[in-house]
Structure formats: C-alpha cells, structure tokens
Simulated scan of single mutants.
Amino acid sequence: MNMPTPPAANTADCRGVSEILNRVGDKWTMQVVVVLRDRPRRFNDLKRQVAGISQQMLTRTLKTLERDGMVERTVCATTPPQVEYALSEFGHSLSEPVRQLAQWAAANLVTIHDNRLRYDTDR
C-alpha cells in the first residue's frame, strides 16, 4: 500500500523545484543557454550576443551555470589564456525546453501586447 508523502517532504521538494525554476527561468540564464546552444563561445562573444547583460552579471550567470553542471569552462593554453564556455550534455537537455519557450514567447508577443493594452485601458 502506498503511503502519502509527509507534508514536510512535499514542502522541501517544492522549495527545491522552485529554486531551480527561478534559476533556469532567469532571463540571463535563458539567454546564455540559447546563445551557447549551437557552439562554444568566449566571454566577450557571449557578452555581445546577450544584449544588455553587464560583465558582472554574465560572470555570475556563467559561474552559477558551471556550478550546476550546465556549462563547461575550458581554458585554452594561449598567451594570454583564452576561456571558452560550452553547454554540457546536461545543459543541452535544458536548451530544448528553453528554445521552445523562447519560440512561444516570440510567436505570442503581439497577443500579449494587445492583451496588456486592453487590460490597462479597462482599468
């Protein structure tokens, strides 16, 4: 007979899932994952591709993704040393749902804009 999970375990699970969703749903994380989906990139290339991100925020985002195992950092033996970032296999498993969400958002921009205008006008 299956016993229901105690409420404390459910609460802990929800907190853990919520933390992960907050991280992977962050706008910078999503954009970095999309940019790295096709190929590895160096830091400045990433910064150019992710419009509006500061150097500090890109550094923080990359470190978080690396810590979570989604991004791999490779130091190339050149002078000066060059660092390249790539999605790990685990990171690629996130890139498909992120890409689908981005496509959904792009396909629905006009509808969302119109709904916001209608809502704001009715208030």
Score class of each variant (00 low, 15 high):
Thr61Glu: 04
Arg73Cys: 15
Ala107Trp: 03
Gly52Gln: 12
Gly91Ser: 09
Lys63Ala: 12
Ala51Asp: 14
Glu72Ile: 15
Trp104Ala: 06
His92Phe: 02
Cys76Asn: 08
Ala102Met: 07
Asp114Lys: 11
Gln82Gly: 04
Asn115Met: 13
Asn22Cys: 11
Lys47Tyr: 13
Thr29Ala: 11
Gln100Asn: 14
Leu65Met: 05
Arg23Gln: 05
Ile20Asn: 00
Trp28Ser: 04
Gln31Trp: 05
Gln31Arg: 10
Asn10Val: 14
Gln56Arg: 15
Asn22Ser: 09
Ser88Gly: 03
Thr5Ser: 08
Gln56Met: 12
Gly91Thr: 07
Thr64Ala: 13
Ser93His: 05
Leu87Gly: 02
Ile20Arg: 01
Val32Thr: 06
Asn44Thr: 10
Gln100Cys: 14
Gly25Cys: 03
Pro7Cys: 08
Asp114Val: 13
Val35Gln: 04
Lys47Asp: 11
Val35Arg: 07
Ser88Phe: 09
Leu94Glu: 00
Pro97Ala: 04
Val17Trp: 05
Leu87Asp: 02
Met57Gly: 03
Glu96Trp: 01
Val32Lys: 00
Ala77Leu: 08
Thr79Glu: 12
Arg99Met: 00
Glu66Gly: 01
Arg39His: 13
Pro80Asp: 05
Glu84Pro: 02
Val83Trp: 07
Leu62Lys: 03
Ala12Pro: 00
Thr61Leu: 13
Ala105Met: 13
Ser95Ile: 00
Pro7Met: 07
Leu109Thr: 15
Val75Arg: 09
Arg73Pro: 02
Ala86Asp: 10
Thr78His: 04
Val50Ile: 09
Thr78Cys: 13
Met3Ala: 11
Asn22Trp: 08
Thr78Ser: 10
Val83Cys: 08
Ile53Cys: 04
Val17Ile: 14
Leu109Asn: 06
Leu46Arg: 02
Thr78Asp: 10
Asp122Gly: 04
Gly91Asp: 02
Arg41Cys: 14
Leu65His: 01
Met1His: 12
Val71Thr: 05
Thr78Arg: 06
Ala106Asp: 15
Thr111Lys: 12
Arg41Ala: 14
Gln82Ala: 14
Ser93Lys: 05
Asp120Arg: 10
Asp13Cys: 14
Leu65Thr: 00
Gln82Asn: 11
Phe90Met: 05
Gly52Arg: 09
Asp114Arg: 09
Val35Leu: 06
Gln56Pro: 03
Glu72Asn: 07
